[in-house]
């Protein structure tokens, strides 16, 4: 009798969880289905629950792959900016996190406290002075202008420091006896050991850059320099007739990330749960 009761409540819990997950996935599913609907109809009706299944077709995708050159320009910009941001910010912050973890040096704790303190300064106060700087260095509307502020990643410094604290220090002494330089030790021995943390931070920085909005909105001026979020946002007008690019383009923006997520779930989860960074 009691067992029966338990079985039923377990079933209810599972079904309930399933329903909540479906609700969470619902907007994504609706996006996929709607991208197959004629764009003019989509603009008129919005995403609806009941629609004509027989008119679903691939026209929006045909259009975006053949005629929407502007869209692929944005795509390239986003890819280039994200790639450079990942490489530079990881290069800078991994070294610092490592140094903070394995070496003892004067000013280390001061430096660390300093980083913690500055971490609390919101980007929004830096934004106007940074914009002024970009104007005076003529970096407005350039890749460098967009990605420069993003290469300072204190969160990544924390993460790498935490990870490097667990590295086998004995290896360093062994390598020193073999005549390796400190730089050789870092690049040839320790950095490869930090790969999992590099993966997590690459995803944090990459996704942050891929989805970044406010700063690119300020620095980017011309249509052919826009990144994907900025470009797509320009299509978000109530009178727009670009819903084909908007909807199929959104799918093409999200799908690669979802595919990466399926393969590298572990890195995504550890990357995105560090310090609750807003993407």
């Amino acid at each position: 009798m009691k067992k029966e009761k338990r079985k039923i409540s377990v079933m209810i819990a599972n079904i309930g969880m399933g329903i909540i997950c479906l609700i969470a996935l619902f907007p994504v599913i609706m996006l996929l289905i709607s991208s197959l609907r004629p764009s003019s109809e989509l603009m008129r009706t919005g995403i609806s629950l009941a629609f004509d299944w027989s008119v679903l077709n691939l026209d929006n995708y045909m259009y975006i792959f053949t005629e929407a050159n502007g869209y692929w320009g944005w795509y390239m910009n986003s890819l280039i900016i994200s790639a450079i941001t990942i490489v530079l910010s990881l290069f800078f912050s991994a070294m610092v996190g490592y140094a903070l973890a394995v070496y003892d040096f004067k000013g280390k704790n001061l430096f660390f406290t300093f980083v913690v303190f500055i971490l609390m300064v919101p980007f929004e106060i830096l934004m106007l002075p940074l914009f002024q700087m970009m104007i005076s260095f003529q970096l407005v509307d350039t890749y460098v202008g967009v990605l420069l502020p993003m290469i300072v990643a204190p969160i990544a410094v924390f993460f790498f420091r935490q990870y490097a604290l667990g590295l086998p220090i004995q290896l360093m002494d062994a390598a020193r006896i073999d005549g390796a330089t400190e730089y050789g030790i870092y690049f040839k021995i320790m950095l490869p050991l930090m790969t999992p943390s590099l993966g997590a931070m690459a995803i944090l920085q990459g996704l942050g850059s891929w989805n970044n909005f406010l700063w690119p909105l300020i620095v980017l001026r011309s249509n052919d320099m826009f990144t994907l979020p900025i470009g797509l946002a320009t299509l978000l007008t109530p009178y727009g007739n670009n819903y084909d690019v908007l909807i199929a383009g959104s799918v093409m923006t999200v799908i690669p990330i979802i595919i990466l997520f399926i393969f590298f779930q572990r890195y995504f989860i550890s990357g995105l749960t560090v310090g609750g960074v807003k993407g």
Binding site: A24, P27, V28, G46, F213, P229, L236, V254, F261, F268
Partner: peptide, 22 residues
């Protein structure tokens, strides 16, 4: 994984879906 998935979409893409749904 499915509860986590929405975090992958940018606010712009997510907002566009919401605009069209609402």
């Amino acid at each position: 994984a499915s509860l986590f998935m929405p975090a992958l979409a940018s606010t712009i893409v997510a907002g566009m879906i919401f605009r069209l749904m609402f």
